Computed example of a mutant assay.
Amino acid sequence: MSGTEHLEVRREGATLVLTLNRPEAKNALSLPMLVGLYDGWLEADADDAVRSVVLTGAGGSFCAGMDLKALAGKGMEGERYRDRLKADPDLHWKAMLRHHRPRKPVIAAVEGYCVAGGTEILQGTDIRVAGESATFGLFEVARGLFPIGGSTVRLPRQIPRTHALEMLLTGRPYPAAEAASIGLVGRVVPDGTALDAALEIAERVNACGPLAVEAVKASVYETAELSEAEGLVSELKRGWPVFDTADAKEGARAFAEKRLPLFRRE
Rank of each mutant, 00 (worst) to 15 (best):
A248C: 09
Y38L: 08
E266I: 00
E5I: 09
L155S: 04
T15E: 06
R98D: 15
A46S: 15
T162V: 13
L195F: 05
P156Q: 05
F263R: 04
L55W: 04
L165A: 10
R10L: 10
P147F: 06
A218I: 05
L195H: 04
M167I: 11
E166P: 00
I107W: 05
A179M: 09
A109V: 02
E203A: 14
G149S: 13
W93Q: 15
V213D: 10
V220I: 15
L145F: 11
S219H: 11
R172V: 00
V53D: 08
T162M: 04
E12Q: 11
D47Q: 07
W93I: 01
L226R: 15
E266S: 02
H92Q: 12
S151E: 08
V233E: 14
A252L: 14
K104P: 00
T4C: 05
T193I: 03
V54W: 00
E111M: 03
S61Y: 06
A70H: 07
E214D: 14
P261R: 10
L55D: 06
W240Y: 11
A25M: 13
E77C: 08
I201G: 03
A64V: 11
G3V: 02
R80K: 15
V54S: 04
P190W: 06
E230W: 01
P210L: 12
G186I: 01
G144I: 01
N27R: 01
A215R: 15
L31H: 08
G60W: 05
T245M: 02
E77L: 14
